[in-house]
Design a protein around this nucleic acid. Structure first.
Lengths: 351, 351
DNA sequence: CCAGGAATAGCAAGCGCTTTCTACTGGGGA
DNA sequence: TCCCCAGTAGAAAGCGCTTGCTATTCCTGG
């Protein structure tokens, strides 16, 4: 029914071994023979059997990319960059690598399952993106899994995520979320803000904690008391920003700024403020994080911390492919850049 | 080095066949034996060899999802929905399916390559999303490839893309881009607009053509001449909308509306108008397409055509998994919904 | 003119798993 | 009491490909 290597070999009057070598191109084959084989492949419309090939060669050309939410541009941009470096239909001839984007939904359990699936497939490399769960049990489980993946020959790269405990040879490209959060809040403090609300990300995730810690560091350094009532947690979506802002305003009507976990949340915060008739930044300043493409189009444009998502993803991809050297110690910290735009202003600048 | 089925069998004092059966759970195994095997699996930290398994069973649990641009939320949302229905770590136990998101970048050639890769892996199903190239050669090549995939046992579903010629058993869930485009322009005509610019998508793609045709149908029906100088093509990005709008304004300073290929492009158009000091919709109305999440947060909120991306993706996923019946004739047309918001208004409503 | 190689091609042994067919066991009906 | 069958487990034949090693050519230098 389906065409196999042997069929091609028969048609080209050569042995299966020769066909395999023509297809893989890593062994000398006379030009005439090669051509004959290629013609047979074409005529028979032959397609290599991937599983058989992977089994025999004990390697695969799959590269897994784990993301928390594929519908979120934050991850889309990183994944896109990783993929473009992986090769896909753009890599070296013959070695068509296939990037597999896996959507974990932020669930550590699913993350683990996908890692097992990737391990099953003997993936060439695995890139984990975005913040991680901080549940000790999961951290241990994932660390162990990553170590095993590494031992089995898969290269493991973390992108935008802190180093994994228990997996020493996983390369980590970490965003300096703490530093970014600090600078953002320092900027606000510099504008005179003292009563700020903070809409944090989901509890128990590294990114959430680091950004929040940066915020608190800045407050502490400026001698401003951190009012725990003014920090609310929620998912990374617009709705969370909206609801949290409404609640923040209820708790503290004299709020002058809202710092959001990321740009999407910030947009929700803006919507809530607008709906209440408050002007931005006249009445309340708003700041985000990430600098996603739409942030510059918000009105007013969002002050935020730009993370070089595409650059980091590309670098992760290259490292995963062994085309770029690992950073010293296997860890690199990537800085964010404060982007001051229209959504933040001096206290009492309007209203 | 690596643990194999045989190792587990030895440890559990059973034959490899029995271990396989315990793992696949499709053959009676005595409870005591099963438990012994499971314990051995656990103790040995055994992970199934995917390629070997696929080879022997002649099936795989990979499902391919092809997207034009993974960094674009349009595709992210669809892919996310497909994936959630595929099962992934959420499907039926034992049958851990793995959704593979492949980024074609809109290139028909890469699309073809990915399809071959998927064919190599004997993918269980393939979902192609978004508009397709209209190059006759590519259309034929892709049609043929899809047919072959179908013949080889992969289920093929098109989501947000017109039926593929030459692949009769590929199910198609098509968006009514033409109808949506028509209704959008009718809305603008109803507001009194007569000099409208149109920022279309890339040339040679079905989506671009259909939306544009809808626009022209509406103009024709209203007896408004279509000025070809007022239609510009470009990629689906912000930049394209910005640049095209600047050019449109140059060609026709008395423009009262800009219709964009999609929301992202519309945002670029808004930015261009703002930069020129024009108010929206006072001076110029702007309309988009898709109703992506950020569109409602634009200021003013974007008038657009909402496409049920998540719903369509989910349906495509279910059909791909054989969990939902195919639409009659293998083709279903999905309607968009006109969302009238603040970015469109009557002609001369301000200035 | 012949030996020593370089250059190609083929043989055959797996890679690790699934699955058909066969073999064995114990219990219940005749 | 004996036979037959339901219930389980094992043996073994591949699945389609890769690759180490061997065999065959044919060219080259001595």
């Amino acid at each position: 029914m389906t065409v196999t290597l042997a069929d091609v070999a028969a048609r080209a009057q050569v042995s299966p071994a020769t066909v395999s070598r023509v297809l893989n191109g890593n062994y000398p084959v006379a030009a005439a023979t090669r051509e004959r084989v290629l013609r047979a492949v074409d005529e028979l419309d032959y397609v290599l059997n991937g599983p058989a090939s992977s089994l025999a060669a004990a390697t695969s050309d799959l590269v897994g990319i784990l993301v928390n939410d594929i519908a979120d541009p934050f991850f889309g941009i990183i994944a896109s960059a990783v993929q473009s470096e992986i090769g896909g239909p753009g890599g070296r001839a013959g070695g068509e690598r296939m990037a597999v984007v896996c959507n974990t939904g932020g669930s550590a359990e699913r993350e683990l399952t996908y890692l097992t699936l990737l391990q099953r497939q003997r993936a060439a490399a695995v890139v984990l993106t975005g913040g991680a769960s901080e549940d000790p049990e999961h951290v241990a489980a994932i660390g162990a899994k990553l170590r095993r993946l590494g031992e089995a020959g898969s290269r493991v790269v973390l992108c935008g995520r802190p180093p994994a405990e228990g997996a020493p040879d996983a390369v980590a490209l970490t965003f300096d979320n703490r530093g970014g959060g600090r600078r953002l809040t320092e900027h606000l403090l510099g504008l005179g803000h003292r009563r700020m609300g903070y809409v944090a990300g989901p509890v128990g995730r590294t990114t959430t904690r680091h950004r929040l810690e940066g915020h608190r560091e800045a407050l502490a350094a400026a001698g401003v008391a951190d009012d725990p009532r003014l920090t609310l947690h929620g998912p990374y979506d617009r709705r969370s920003g909206y609801d949290a802002t409404v609640e923040l305003l209820r708790r503290e009507p004299s709020l002058t700024a809202v710092v959001a976990a990321n740009d999407t949340v910030a947009l929700g915060a803006c919507a809530a403020l607008r709906d209440r008739g408050l002007s931005i930044p006249g009445d309340v300043s708003v700041a985000g994080f990430d600098d996603l493409p739409f942030s510059v189009d918000a009105v007013p444009a969002l002050t935020t911390v730009r993370l070089p998502l595409a650059g980091a993803g590309a670098r992760a991809g290259r490292i995963a492919m062994g085309r770029e050297e690992e950073p010293p110690g296997g860890i690199a910290t990537i800085q964010g850049e404060l982007m001051v735009r229209g959504s933040t202003g001096g206290v009492g600048s309007g209203g």
